[in-house]
Amino acid sequence: MPHLSTYVALADHSEQTLAESLRAVAEGHARQADVFHTCHTLAGWSDQHRQDLAPVVERYGEQEDVDEPERLRADALTNTREGEIGLLRDLQDLHLLATLVHSTWTVIAQGAQGLRDHQLLDVATSSRQETTRQLTWLTTRMKQAAPQALIVAS
């Protein structure tokens, strides 16, 4: 199972990246009260997923001798953009990061089933469900912001 640990580490890292990016968007678009509060809430979910995963990370350990695939990790969103169209684009970036998290949990759940690792399967399943809710909110908010941002905003 050389690469399962790689993917467990990827899940941990991509949740961290998503949480950091959500917080960056929250602060960058703090004037949009719902964006500010919801992004902080969703970042808290990602923190929790990492906490839930922590015992598994410990169990599998860091596998120093395994080569990670190239370009494994995505970078966090650190600088947010300005205005309504900037918000829209930032939400798209969050959506991309959340999609990476989602598919990572899908992949890990497959591995966990193969290994009959109940603890990991539970973490992957419950975390993926919440990632789906994160994605749903991002889509909802993008749909709400899009017409105004695309057609009217200067």
Binding site: D34, T38, T41, L42, R133, Q134, T136, W137, T139, T140
Partner: peptide, 9 residues
């Protein structure tokens, strides 16, 4: 809706 986020079903 999701009662926590407001995301639409």
């Amino acid at each position: 809706h999701d009662l926590i986020t407001g995301g639409t079903v």
